[in-house]
């Protein structure tokens, strides 16, 4: 039997034998070696990803401390999260606030930098490298660096403020300033977003700018009416990735605001739990309080939130995303 392979307009391109005996023999013959070749990956995926994913679903319905067999609880962990646990609610609210402010801020700043880096200026490769450079520094190192810079005890940021006659700000010790500090800190990691925007900018056809200029468009209108619509798929991509990253933020708050620092505190939520983030709370519950089942339930709720927000972003993207 032959199948006519056609292009999207329905015009037949070529007659091809479909699932011919030869093809079937070839496929069957190559199947086993093929599977064996990728078996290290399959084993790795099954053992380190698939099994933990499936196990975590099961654990989320149990009381499990990692040493003793899990005890089945049904939906008790989920019920407790929503009805009793105020730290869960606090962590969820803090994370939502962080995402709400950091994602648009990062997108805006990254977009502006990408526009600047797209200009033909001397030393452009150096600037591009410089802006990407923070992305290759491990997040823990970045967090330690910023906790030193923002430290009220002689941190360079406050030294600079003091030098110009401004009052020092308790960036990391006041519940009023901790969240703004963390949001501002997120801008440090915009390097990859800038690079993606830059790649998008290279793809915007020159003719569109030229046509707009002929119609009398100034620089602002060029950005608003040409660049942004043409970059909208890239903006959507960065938005979705940004939401996912913001909702999972861990290293910065964990390292800067505690991680169990001090003799008695296991919390990393900062003063008044003002920067208690969801992933940090999940980690604390799992590894410091040994409530692995409860933490698994938290993880699945976070997954559901991220999945829903990503779907919503994509679902409503057709209103503002322009595809060529």
């Amino acid at each position: 039997m032959a199948t006519r392979i056609a292009d999207s307009g329905g015009i037949p391109l070529v007659d091809q034998p479909f699932r011919s005996n030869r093809w079937r023999r070839l496929r069957r013959g190559d199947l086993i070696p093929g599977l064996l070749f990728i078996s290290p990956w399959i084993v790795g995926f099954a053992w380190f990803q698939l099994y933990p994913i499936i196990a975590s679903i099961r654990y989320s319905f149990t009381d499990y401390n990692m040493m003793q067999p899990p005890i089945w609880l049904g939906f008790a962990n989920y019920t407790r999260l929503f009805t009793e646990d105020d730290l869960f609610r606090k962590a969820l609210a803090n994370t939502a606030i962080y995402a709400l402010f950091s994602v648009p801020l990062d997108l805006f700043v990254a977009f502006c930098f990408a526009l600047l880096l797209n200009l033909r200026i001397p030393g452009r490769p150096i600037f591009r490298t410089a802006f990407y450079f923070p992305a290759v520094i491990p997040s823990v190192a970045t967090a330690i660096l910023w906790s030193m810079l923002l430290n009220t005890k002689g941190g360079l940021v406050n030294v600079a403020l003091k030098a110009v006659g401004l009052p020092v700000i308790p960036w990391l010790t006041s519940p009023t300033w901790t969240m703004p500090s963390l949001i501002l800190l997120s801008v440090w990691g915009i390097g990859p977003i800038v690079v993606i925007f830059l790649a998008g900018l290279q793809d915007v056809p020159r003719e569109l700018y030229e046509a707009a200029k002929l119609d009398g468009a100034g620089p602002f209108r060029l950005v608003r009416d040409v660049t942004i619509p043409m970059l909208s798929p890239v903006i959507l991509f960065n938005l979705v990735i940004g939401i996912i990253a913001a909702l999972q933020v861990f290293a910065q708050p964990f390292v800067i605001f505690g991680g169990g620092q001090g003799g008695g505190g296991g919390a990393a939520g900062g003063p008044l739990n003002s920067v208690l983030m969801y992933s940090v709370q999940l980690y604390t519950v799992a590894f410091q309080q040994f409530q692995m089942g409860y933490a698994a339930a938290m993880a699945w709720i976070l997954f559901a939130i991220i999945f829903s927000l990503s779907l919503l972003s994509i679902r409503f993207s057709n209103r503002f995303v322009h595809y060529e």
Binding site: L87, G264, G265, G266, A267, G269, L272, N273, T284, Q288, Q289, F290
Partner: peptide
């Protein structure tokens, strides 16, 4: 460990 998390707060 639970008290340790709640008490500073």
């Amino acid at each position: 460990p639970i008290f340790d998390q709640e008490f500073p707060n």
